[in-house]
Simulated assay, not measured.
Amino acid sequence: MPPPDTIEAYVDAAAAALALPLAPEHRPGVLRYFALASQMAALVNGLPLAVEDEPAPQFVPLSPQDAAP
């Protein structure tokens, strides 16, 4: 897992790049989420892939009107 200052720098840079205001009261929760997401990504990245492994098919959501009854 990246150190907390790296996560903070990423959150600050991403918010600035998206022109997304981050309220001070929301910042601790956002930082906790990104720390958790980093842990989950490390688990996924730690799994070995074989040559025959295939990516998942693309998910394309349908609106309720387009779904078959």
Rank of each mutant, 00 (worst) to 15 (best):
P3D: 12
F34S: 02
F34M: 14
A23Q: 09
S38T: 08
A16M: 10
A14N: 12
P24N: 12
E54V: 05
A67Y: 06
Q58L: 12
R27K: 15
G29I: 02
E8K: 13
P28M: 06
L20C: 10
L22W: 03
Q65M: 04
I7E: 07
A14V: 12
A15R: 05
A14I: 04
P61M: 00
P24I: 00
P69Q: 01
V44I: 09
P24R: 09
H26G: 05
S38Y: 01
P64H: 08
I7L: 02
P55S: 13
A16D: 14
S63N: 01
P21S: 15
A37M: 08
V11C: 08
P2S: 01
S38Q: 06
Q58P: 06
L49E: 09
P57K: 13
L62K: 02
L18P: 07
P24V: 00
F59H: 13
A56F: 04
L22K: 09
L31H: 03
L36S: 11
P3F: 06
E8C: 05
E52K: 10
A35Y: 05
Y33K: 15
V44R: 12
A67E: 08
A19T: 10
V51G: 08
P2V: 00
A16S: 14
M40Q: 11
P55M: 14
A15F: 05
A42N: 06
L62N: 02
L20M: 15
D53H: 07
P57G: 11
D12A: 11
V30T: 10
E8N: 10
P57V: 11
A19Y: 08
T6I: 08
P61S: 00
P21I: 09
F59A: 00
D66Y: 10
S38G: 07
A50L: 10
P55T: 14
R32L: 11
Q58W: 05
A23E: 14
N45V: 06
D53W: 03
M1I: 11
E54I: 04
G29D: 13
D66V: 00
A16Y: 07
A50V: 07
D5A: 10
Y33D: 15
A19Q: 15
L20A: 11
A56D: 13
V60D: 04
P2D: 02
R27H: 11
T6Y: 08
S63T: 03
L62R: 04
E8F: 03
Q58F: 05
L20H: 08
I7D: 09
Q65D: 15
D53S: 05
R32W: 02
G46V: 05
S38M: 05
A67N: 02
P21C: 09
Q39I: 03
S63H: 01
P69D: 03
A41E: 10
Y10V: 03
G29P: 09
E52I: 09
L31Y: 07
L36E: 14
F59S: 02
Q65Y: 06
E54P: 02
Y10S: 05
P28W: 01
A50E: 14
P4Q: 10
V11R: 03
A17D: 08
L36N: 12
Q65T: 10
M40K: 07
L22C: 12
A17Q: 12
L18E: 15
P69E: 03
P57W: 02
